[in-house]
Computed example of a mutant assay.
Amino acid sequence: MHARAVAATASALLGLVALLLPISGARADHETPRPAVIAHRGASALAPENTLLAVDRAHRLGFTWVENDVQRTKDGVLVVLHDAGLARTTNVEQVFPGRAPWRVRDFTSAEIARLDAGSWFGRRFRGARVPTLRQYLARVDRNRQSLLLEIKNPAFYPGIAPQVLAELRRSGWLDRAHLKRLVIQSFDAPTVRTVHRLRPAVRTAVLGAPSVARLREYARFADQINPRHLGLTVGYVAAVQRLRGPHGRPVEVCAWTVDRPVDTLIAATYGVDCLITNRPDVVRRALSVF
């Protein structure tokens, strides 16, 4: 796209944002820092999600933060997968045709290691594997990246929060240097509370949008409130950020999953602290005009 076309597109988007935002309550431009960009499941629009390939793609694009999802196998190994089932992102139906509904928790780590987690995304990704959490942590560390780690479906995996913390400790991620590069989140507030109780130095986040009336309660154990970007308001963002979290800093807001330029600019103008996105490249370009 020519520079003149890019400028015209940016101006049009900013004009649309101005029309969509309330006149009062939004921060002035000079008071609104550019939000951080977090690559959702790695650069998951460009490489198969939650694989080491997606982590590396985000790294090559220059993105420091990646997000992932952690679950547990039948034999107790932590693996990086989003869905409770294996069918969408692997060839499990072909490898184990008689094992429906192909739930993560019904397969051993050795069985999951046999699966192709890349071909569904594109032929050139054939042979990608589902990483264990230990493998994933090693790759993120090698790339000097930071990690927003989601504990997925904790109701299926009793004791997964302390197990995740134990793996982080074994992998060297609970020292002072790594703690600056780590946030643990979940949709399940009791799980987040457990992480904070067991390891108070770890930053934590609650996924979703608790009512304003409950925000003060959540701020006792959560450093971030991470809502879906749809339905987000400038007033809600401000209500969160007025509170101090468990480490004495303002509670942050990370909105998900923001993939379109117009949504990027709206959320940024609301003053969110970070944007979780499948398309970090698109979001970065959009923020360049902010």
Rank of each mutant, 00 (worst) to 15 (best):
N278Y: 09
D29G: 00
P162E: 08
A128S: 12
T73C: 02
V95G: 01
C254W: 15
A58K: 08
L149F: 10
I266F: 10
W102T: 05
L14Q: 12
L52S: 03
L20P: 00
L78Y: 06
H2F: 00
G245H: 13
G42H: 13
S119H: 11
G245Y: 12
I23M: 03
T194S: 13
I160R: 04
V104T: 13
G122H: 07
V282M: 14
T277W: 11
L21K: 05
L174C: 08
P200K: 08
A177K: 14
V258Y: 05
L165G: 01
A58W: 12
P227C: 05
G127D: 09
H229Q: 14
A239L: 11
I225A: 07
L53I: 13
L207G: 04
A138D: 14
G25A: 06
L13C: 02
F156M: 03
H196N: 07
R197N: 06
A239R: 15
A100R: 15
N68L: 06
N68A: 04
S44P: 09
R244I: 10
A209E: 15
R126S: 05
P158F: 04
P154I: 08
R284D: 07
P210K: 15
D188T: 13
F221Y: 15
F290N: 13
N50C: 04
A222L: 13
A18F: 08
E111V: 01
I23A: 15
G15C: 03
S24K: 09
G271K: 09
L265E: 09
G25C: 00
R260M: 09
R216N: 06
T9D: 02
T264N: 10
V192E: 07
K152N: 02
Q71P: 01
A110R: 15
R105M: 03
T108H: 12
L86G: 00
T277G: 07
L14M: 08
P162C: 11
L137N: 12
E217I: 04
N68Y: 01
V79H: 01
Q145A: 10
T90E: 00
G15A: 12
P200G: 04
L133D: 08
R134H: 03
D273M: 06
R199N: 01
A189D: 10
L207V: 15
V240K: 11
L21H: 04
L207F: 12
L168A: 07
T32Q: 14
W120T: 08
R216Q: 14
R169F: 02
E49D: 10
R124P: 00
G76T: 03
P200S: 05
Q163S: 02
A239N: 09
L14T: 07
